[in-house]
């Protein structure tokens, strides 16, 4: 078994579970902006502050529940953040949700700057690759992913919202996700499991 580096997310989460405020502070510095931006774009700045407080207070109180064998820390924390944001977003009206999701979709459609990629950390390179892949996704696939992930909408809701058959929505999401996976695989092929033949056959 390989021990995590002392400043890895997993190691810091373990220390937070033992009430280590320095470790908590380091995790805050890594993830707070992403949580805040996520909430601020979908809700408002004041509520985004509340979300950050709630999410990190939950981290402080529940860090012991994180199990690195079941997944990465960032996914665990972002799932907490997403649940909190979705709860608040569901209370807003449909028009509001449409508008904020349009804005997120537009932002994610931007092609990232290609300079200085070599100087980026591995994590940053992965984010860059994902950003590029999102921007290059066909608009309908990206839109379906944005509605599902950032809007917390069910496939049926997306189907109604886009006036598309349910099967088409599912297919768009599956295709979009598959492409995003491949983009990450390109950056770190060892990190992903071999794709099945079915993935290779996927066509846009």
């Amino acid at each position: 078994m390989i021990d995590s580096p002392p400043d890895s997310d997993d190691a810091l989460a373990l220390r937070v579970a033992k009430r280590d405020k320095l470790a908590f502070s380091m995790l805050y510095d890594r993830y707070a902006r992403a949580v805040y931006v996520f909430a601020a774009h979908l809700l408002d700045p004041n509520e985004a502050e509340e979300v950050v407080q709630d999410v990190f207070l939950r981290l402080w109180n529940k860090a012991g529940q994180f199990d690195s064998a079941k997944g990465v820390f960032g996914a665990w924390l972002m799932q907490i953040a997403r649940n909190r944001v979705m709860d608040a977003l569901q209370k807003r009206n449909k028009q509001y949700r449409q508008e904020v999701l349009d804005e997120v979709d537009e932002l994610l459609a931007q092609i990232p700057d290609e300079s200085n990629i070599e100087q980026m950390s591995w994590e940053r390179q992965q984010q860059h690759a994902l950003q590029l892949a999102l921007a290059q996704l066909p608009e309908d696939q990206r839109r379906a992913i944005v509605l599902a992930y950032f809007g917390g909408m069910s496939h049926t809701e997306i189907s109604n919202s886009l006036a598309l058959p349910l099967g088409t929505v599912k297919k768009r999401i599956a295709l979009g996700v598959s492409k995003l996976r491949k983009a990450l695989q390109h950056i770190n092929p060892l990190a992903t499991t071999p794709e099945k033949a079915s993935d290779a056959k996927e066509k846009e």
């Binding site: 992403a34 805040y36 079941k70 996914a75 992965q126 994902l130 992930y149 950032f150 996700v177």
Partner: peptide
Amino acid sequence: RENERLFAMLPMVLAQVSEVQLPPHL
């Protein structure tokens, strides 16, 4: 798990393209 990791990166990507800044007092 790889899917979960990918989805967790979506807010990170949004943070990369967004100009919204984290309030320093928070």
